[in-house]
Design a protein around this nucleic acid. Sequence first.
DNA 1: TCAACTTATTAAAGGCTGTTTATAAACTCC
DNA 2: GGAGTTTATAAACAGCCTTTAATAAGTTGA
Lengths: 413, 413
Amino acid sequence: MITYLTLFKKEGVRLIKGNQRLLKKMNRTQVLDLIRREGPLSKAQLAERMKLTFAGVSKIVNDLESSGILFLRGEGRSSGGRKPALYALNATAFYVVAVDLSVDEIHVALMDLSTVTVDETCLAAPGDRTPRSYVEAVRLGVQTLLERSGIPRKKILGVGVSSPGPVNSVTGEVLYPPNLPLWNVVPLKERLEQELRMPVKVEKDANLHALGEKWFGAGRGADNLVYVLVGEGIGGGIVIEGSLYRGTPFGAGEIGHGTVDLHGPRCNCGNYGCLEVMASGLAVIRRIREKIRAGHASPHYPAPEKIQLSNVLKAFQCGDDLTIRELEETSRVIAAGLIGVVNSLRPDMLILGGKLSRGFPLMTDIVKGVIRERVVPALSEQLQIVKGELRDKSGLVGAAALVMEEIFTLQLK
Amino acid sequence: MITYLTLFKKEGVRLIKGNQRLLKKMNRTQVLDLIRREGPLSKAQLAERMKLTFAGVSKIVNDLESSGILFLRGEGRSSGGRKPALYALNATAFYVVAVDLSVDEIHVALMDLSTVTVDETCLAAPGDRTPRSYVEAVRLGVQTLLERSGIPRKKILGVGVSSPGPVNSVTGEVLYPPNLPLWNVVPLKERLEQELRMPVKVEKDANLHALGEKWFGAGRGADNLVYVLVGEGIGGGIVIEGSLYRGTPFGAGEIGHGTVDLHGPRCNCGNYGCLEVMASGLAVIRRIREKIRAGHASPHYPAPEKIQLSNVLKAFQCGDDLTIRELEETSRVIAAGLIGVVNSLRPDMLILGGKLSRGFPLMTDIVKGVIRERVVPALSEQLQIVKGELRDKSGLVGAAALVMEEIFTLQLK
DNA sequence: TCAACTTATTAAAGGCTGTTTATAAACTCC
DNA sequence: GGAGTTTATAAACAGCCTTTAATAAGTTGA
């Protein structure tokens, strides 16, 4: 019954042509996106927002309704005339598969168009750490979800994959991820498409965290936003004018590798005094180790060489002084590093995410404070600085959003 | 005879509607932009590039030709069939007025669509430094050029203004420019439109340098570029996906105000250890003053408190050791500061401009060297680092480009 | 040189957008 | 309960680009 996919897919290459089909796709995606973001809307509201005539919108909405992706949901309030019919998104018209690859776990989820999870599974990363095994694990995970849910393949828009390391999102290749030494250049998209026989899109994890927050999290209202991922390292994702900014040809968003200390130590990236080397989770661990080795006793820590991020966060929860001081100082350094990003990009929102920022909630306030203090007030007032809302789900949600772009955004090129 | 303007202007608000008019405008601007950027093209080439049918393009080109903005210029080479007719941009179909406001000079130029200057004039900034006097000076300058050239107002697309200080480019207001203390909030666009009775667009100088290089200078081939303006201060302009990125609501591009030294001195912007406070022209002057006061004799300098940027650049040209060392060190700091920009934005081009970078040509090589060394090679190889081509013209050319967006780019919203 | 092939061009017919216009239905307000 | 307002539908319309067919103007190679 749902013919939306065929309606669009059929066009193939031709769709790109600067012709009426483009116009059609533009207006249809815009209707769907408006309704997705703002909930049920009437035809009149859509016409107003889209600067189309009522009749034009009526045709579009009727088409989308009969294709099953929109449905009539109640009536709106009258403002002196006939009550408008409200149309809502049928979130179960299609589903997406979201995959979050990390070094030690593989999360796979089957979600509907409002990111409600139908079913999910989490597999331990394969012991041999080879690309081949990861691909096989993903295949298995996806297959399991498809079978358990009974959702037909036709209703699956595609598979979105969040992967660590630099990702060439055009080719879908993962390139030398630092924490997966056996992965050199892995054509992940190609391999997975072979295995799964579905369209696959691969993107860098931090970019998908950003995209997830933009579409379904804290960043919903922001056009230009920077997502800061503070965990063992410091990564980031940049959304500009509403869509993910990837750079030329890719690799943008590495906001953790700007110089904040001209005389700082060398970072793995080749630079000296990077934000990451000065203020990431690993930097915190390094400094706590040094302090402990230097005789600063703390009951919350194991032997210095065994300290992990989880120990640090636990120590913080137990109120360990040393840890609190280190985390506070680190947050101030992060804030100082972000000032460059803010002054360069002037986003309307800065979203803080990642294990460290979640484990140390004060970070947001400290960053907020430093930025308010050190950025021209007229402009810093416009900037919202918030925590990520999606927590450990942001990778999956972002991967889902990546696939949904197919339906909700106009993709030229 | 040239009806292009009426053809488009007539549409008014309606143009925005997501309808065929939009399509028409899209395709026409794309034809004009392709021909502007790539020189004379045949209908077949355009059809290929634009993914339109030959017949479709033919109609468009014929329209544009009869409106006078394109003209037939010779024939192309045959590749086994009839020779194609080539169409070129009629650069004198329209003109633009470009204004470059700086603290002590006002440049006004009348240019055609290929930025050939028909006539120009340079006025000293008014002694009283009031907005009112600047506006009057601009009015006078524009009037003079219009009268001298005899070009009718109908052929002028509009006036582009490059202004120092933060500029709200939507409202066309200049906000508290640091070097013009009498200017608080100046509605420059509004005032000039009243005086000149022409459409006026105002933008921050660094942004227009970037735009100028993108359209007519070193950045022609780049989609994502960062322009770095190194003069007394360090400013910048960012072009993303081919168009100027302004941030929310404006003010982006201030790449001189990222922290590069956590313990550095306070900058006027409120931050500490900014790139600007560490490595701008004024920072160089400050350090040379200190050295001289500390007894480091140099025959090339006047009394320390009288040293200006021009003295520094002259001393460099005379081969003054102290100066060379300072400029080299400064360039390395600038490079270190730009690494953050490169890693965040991953542009395909970095353009260095401004008085200091022009006066000390080695800067480009030093920056190139440091960045090659400290940015992941796979990605830094893709990055071009070049000098600006437009030199002291880039403000004017950028202002011209700003106005030409009207014709050559699709402007939604 | 000339047929065969290729490429460029024009013109008319056609398809598909959204728009305009006319009409009706449903609601509020006094 | 009628005037005025808002929502909705349907048919005729206008304007884009596409399709198709016919023509024009080159190249190539025997």
